[in-house]
Write a protein that binds this DNA or RNA. Structure first.
Lengths: 212, 212
DNA sequence: GAGATTTCTTGACAAGTGTCAAACAAAGTC
DNA sequence: GACTTTGTTTGACACTTGTCAAGAAATCTC
């Protein structure tokens, strides 16, 4: 897995200092993510990020080697927050229906409440096809998301007393297709998108299980 | 549907002239699409487009009001070429297996041979979430692609003697998820991606049909 | 072929970009 | 308190961007 410290190898090793640096970095990243989620990768400049934060544009360059380093850090920071979204539901659900309902609820919730982040993710994944510096991080996140979906599906199969009818990569691609459609649609017309997503997912989920 | 003439309302109405203008526009658009497919939306400038063409950057601005006008035209031009990709297969196939095989063949073929176009499409669809000037065109193409998938699926169901188990939008989202995964994966590692895609699609296709 | 019209080239502009470095402030060290 | 280290501001740089306008070239019209 990729370490989250990349541009700081040659910085002084005082422990408290590193902690402080790391905290500044996280603050910068959080601010940058807000701007990135709003404007997208193409239209976000370092100055815009700095303006929307409490820092000046020089500070950004003090804590990150260059733009890619910052964005890359943001992506890796983001991943740590997103791929564990459904863990609680998976762990606490005691029936297939409960798991399904919890999954759908969390899914539509994050669609609505974290729209900018999802927009950014699909944007960055597209960018990774053109900028190979982003590729490794994107692949890592995709892997995490795939595992997330797989945990849900295999647990669902277990509760229903069957087994998954497709492999993890396929299941992820299908679910992601539905979710991306919802995110894109939500950008144009927020009304009804969550319900449509929920309907489609609950329609598909049973088809990915073979009851033995 | 959106007309393909947008910035030329006030130009002289000589018929042969309009034709010539339109031909120049198409030439510009084709050249621009090549560059866009290579570099992506964010990194493509009007000058870059002009440099990779036989025209100068002034010509671009002579035929298109601004950058968005050009890109928008490109997108609309592109759509006319892509959404009829499987029509021949649908029309000539006489059995479900033949249709499935033909579909898979064309799908993997376009994945390999038109990679830049597909990359660009996913890029632009992501951009449309941030730039509402692109949104209408993207929605129109999405609609076309959805209908394309629906023609395949419903014909497939017909040949197999059943009917589709999901609606058009759902079917498109699922297929698109698989295809996008393949396109993104193909960018990082071309080897094996087409085969994986074919395997996954052929695994899913039957699950979208109810045999009555 | 002269004159008008369309097409294209060239060069310029203002604005914005990533990057960096020198001056300055703050904090820690002896 | 002087001095070094760490953090921050500010302003500048070289460059690219979209846009436009003035004029040259080509084409058409009579």
């Amino acid at each position: 897995m990729i370490a989250v410290a990349s541009a700081a190898e040659e910085r002084p090793a005082r422990v408290s200092g590193i902690d402080k640096i790391e905290r500044r970095r996280v603050a910068l990243a959080e601010s940058a993510l807000k701007t990135l989620g709003e404007l997208g990768y193409a239209r976000t400049s370092l100055r815009e990020i700095a303006n929307n934060s409490e820092f000046t544009h020089g500070v950004v360059h003090y804590y990150f080697r260059d733009k890619i380093d910052l964005i890359s850090y943001c992506v890796r920071y983001y991943k740590t927050k997103c791929a564990r979204r459904y863990d609680e539901v998976v762990e606490t659900a005691t029936s297939a229906d409960e798991l399904g309902a919890g999954f759908l609820a969390k899914m539509t919730q994050t669609l609505v409440e974290e729209t900018p982040m999802h927009r950014l993710w699909y944007d960055l994944r597209a960018q990774s096809m053109f900028e190979e510096q982003l590729r490794a991080d994107v692949i890592a996140i995709d892997q995490l998301l795939e595992e997330m979906i797989w945990r849900i599906l295999s647990r669902y199969a277990e509760l229903v007393g069957g087994e998954a009818a497709v492999d993890a990569a396929t299941a992820y691609a299908l679910m992601d297709g539905l979710f991306e459609q919802a995110v894109v649609g939500y950008a144009g017309d927020p009304a009804g998108a969550p319900e449509r997503l929920a309907g489609r997912v609950s329609q598909i989920l049973p088809k990915l299980i073979i009851t033995t």
